[in-house]
Design a protein around this nucleic acid. Structure first.
Lengths: 342, 342
DNA sequence: CTGAAAGCGCTTACAG
DNA sequence: CTGAAAGCGCTTACAG
């Protein structure tokens, strides 16, 4: 293996018989005599020169690689959000460093630290935060010096203690609206497939749903709520548990579509029909759910927009004195997975 | 906004009252008197110091950020492959720069160039190459100097002219096996939903399927093949076109699951039943297809493994004299979307 | 083991 | 407009 040798600006300058400064300027499109410029460009082309981004960043030129952290890129929710992020990144000639935490809070902190080391001009945290004092403190400890160093941070979903620019899907309102819609369909007995209680998203969606039911005089018992991982298998397992306990609900609300998909599979495997035996509703409106049989009733969130807006925020300076918040509403979409009982 | 000021190693060294060299060594876990080491670590902690990755990379330390290029991260196929990539990356403390080309060949080249500038020690190209001489030449022009500079490249899927380490899903064999399976079910009239002809994956899957049919004495006419984008909507549109022409096939083979999902939706919207009226088969076995109704018959590829293996290859030096090739077989999985006619 | 110094490859005032 | 030079923040031989 040959020594890791790269063509440098100096090589280009020599080949073009100009100074380093001139070569640099020509390559960066600054004022240079056309004649010299052409010589530099030709030399660079001929040598297959690529500027060293590290040297560039070190020397003070702005760095065009932003950081994005998600829980799991193979989850359709994050894939959709990331799609929006990538679009805006592409439009702005930005490279994205994408980290997948696999839902490990420690890992999320470690990635922020790495991104900080990379001097990413902006960091996006997609996916909800953890309601854990230790985590919050550690995250703040990473973010504070980053922000003080001029870094920008934007988050998708609520982070209780993080005072940064945020794109907030209206989880609480969306879940409440879903409760109303389900009530309107005539349902009175519900069960909820919830995710890890430490996630802010779980608290918000569950809270919104429960409070709205309470207004209608319906109380959600602890036994009506099953906690499981925010995954397809988590939904499958939670639904199975509900079934084993003897399901009395006519409608099951899964806090995410991915869980709802698992729940439907569990019902099918138990020989039950959706929505004839049990109605199922989800949250998010990931692309696939409209193609399921039956298509899933859900709270539709503009997933790509979540990512787009967050990236856009991270790219524009916040001139105001306080953090910016963009709220993106969710819309209840009634599809065939929920039966009308009245 | 305060000046973009960062805590540097020098600050840490001063606070700890040691030299730059000692501070560097202490932070990098090299031999240093425990006493000094503790002082340095305490100072770093106290100042919330993060080493500047650019300075580090420039100074010769190895850079732990690899590049990965895919066509569209929000596509379940790439999301699944990327999941595998991220897992291996995480296990190796690597950060991943992920670029989404949105299926634009030009963009792919541009991203390789950017990744080259970032001095990524490895670049992964996931997603099939383009059979286009111009593209091939441009890609080679980027890759050659990169490889010569010590960079590593691994690709998922075939790239005709790229002589680099590859993970090859057995597209041709898989499609052939599918043809046989479908023939065994009794089907004799087929239609194919193909993708852009310039993609090597299309050529391979279509070729394998067609050749196998031919062995059974069945010729696929040009009119039996519809080309469309490799997306859900592409599949929907292609199926609709087939229907408008008057479908005579008893079985439709979509070259990807994502297209198959669109095809099923189109059939449903036309009031046709899968598999009672038409059988549908796909390719890839993206996670969701087992949860569809009916679940999809497909050629199952170990998607996360595709990414894992490629990443693993890019991480280990190729000591041999020739490029490495890992072939990952696809297995036909017959599910309910294909009817048995005999 | 520790420190002074060179060097990584650029950019950007500063002179000319 | 062009060039010589300083400096970005590290790491790593090279002495001691």
């Amino acid at each position: 293996m040959q020594p890791r040798t790269h063509v440098t600006l100096e090589d280009v300058a020599k080949a073009a018989e100009v100074s380093l400064a001139t070569a640099s300027r020509a390559l960066n499109g600054m004022r240079v005599t056309p004649q010299l410029r052409d010589r530099v460009l030709a030399a660079a082309e001929q040598l297959a020169y690529t500027p060293n981004a590290h040297a560039r960043a070190l020397a003070g030129a702005s760095h065009r690689t932003v950081g994005v952290i998600c829980h799991d890129i193979s989850d359709p929710y994050f894939a959709a959000v990331a799609g929006g992020v990538m679009r805006v990144a592409g439009d702005n000639d930005l490279l994205v460093m994408l980290a997948s935490t696999f839902r490990d809070p420690e890992r999320e902190i470690a990635y922020v630290s790495m991104l900080r080391a990379e001097r990413a001009p902006a960091i996006l945290l997609t996916g909800s935060g953890f309601e854990d004092p230790r985590w919050e403190r550690a995250m703040e400890a990473e973010l504070k010096p980053y922000l003080e160093g001029g870094g920008r941070v934007a988050v998708v979903s609520r982070h209780r203690s993080l005072k940064v620019d945020s794109v907030l899907p209206e989880n609480r309102a969306g879940a409440a609206a879903m409760a109303r819609a389900l009530l309107d369909l005539g349902h009175r007995r519900f069960a909820v497939l919830a995710g890890p209680p430490a996630l802010t998203t779980v608290a918000d969606r569950l809270g919104g749903f429960r409070d709205e039911l309470k207004k209608a005089g319906i109380t959600l018992a602890t036994s009506d709520i099953v906690e499981a991982p925010f995954t397809r298998d988590g939904g499958y397992g939670a639904m199975t548990e509900l079934l084993d306990r003897g399901l009395t609900a006519t409608c099951v609300f899964a806090l995410t579509d991915v869980m709802a998909i698992g729940a439907c599979a569990a019902l099918r495997d138990h020989g039950l029909s959706v929505p004839d035996d049990v109605s199922v509703a989800g949250f998010d409106d990931i692309p696939i759910v409209r193609d399921l049989t039956p298509p899933l009733t859900t709270v539709a969130l503009p997933l790509p927009q979540l990512g787009e807006q967050a990236m856009q925020m991270a790219l524009t300076e916040n001139t105001g004195r306080r953090r910016r918040i963009v709220r993106l509403g969710g819309e209840v979409v009634i599809r065939a997975s929920t039966a009308k009982l009245v």
